[in-house]
Amino acid sequence: MSDSVIEIRNLSKVYRDFWGRAKVRALNSLSLDVKRGEVFGLLGPNGSGKTTTLKLLLGLLFPTEGQVRILGEPAHDVEKNERIGYLPEESYLYRFLNADETLDFYGKLFKMTKAERRERRDALIKRVGLEHARRRQLKEYSKGMTRRIGLAQALINDPELVLLDEPTSGLDPLGTADMKEMIRELKNEGKTVVMCSHLLADVQDVCDRIAILFRGELKVIGSVQELLEAKEETQLVTSSLDDATIREVESVLEKHGANLKSFSHPTSTLEELFLRTVKESEARPGRRFEPGERPSATTES
């Protein structure tokens, strides 16, 4: 088995209206691979084709051109879904079910036994922190709660590949931290995670590799480290320091000819990369990432 969990080749998608007239070219000749065991971030401004890519991977949409393989199978294969978990952009769940019923229902779709379902359900509800609301219908849920149950649903089958479409949208800071923790746990368990997001801090924290899409085209791809290492800066993150210690650190730095620029929380440098990529792409449409090209080349200018 190859170590690519997802292979996308020249994937294009044109949305058409009822009469078959082309409306939007949402994806244009996208090619990328996701390796087994990595956390892959799909970035891009609104409408850049992230969700479209995921839907094509899952066979919810049919490609206009190109192919995808996911877990070595074509997108329309049903049986591969046994090993996939998917959290849609908004948790599209049945509003008349409560949390227990929801997880039970999806468990049944995986042909789990009653005992398995109960065990899995209880563990997941605990994991996403919904124990207090497990008997309430989803239509009464807040956005963040819906998100949590959505994530639980995506993990019901203990999937080996998890596709998360904006997992942290609508979550409170605590929830966001939980989510990131969970993604890390999944990675530690050897699972592959693909996530879309705008929240670059999150992506930077958890992703091994990222791709940035702009208007359906791939602009940047590479490992987070690689993409950001060009920076002539070093960030120190320590446990909370008192003023005296900070002065001491300053003096040590001075001795080595460096000066302390800031001692606040780390800024998300990925944000800079992202903004730069988007601006550049807007200024010079048509240029895009070609395989073989060094990823940072696009970012240098």
Partner: peptide, 14 residues
């Protein structure tokens, strides 16, 4: 329309 079917068909459901 509510796309709740999306969540179902991405399970191993024929």
């Amino acid at each position: 329309k509510a796309r709740s079917l999306h969540t179902v068909v991405t399970k191993p459901v024929r």
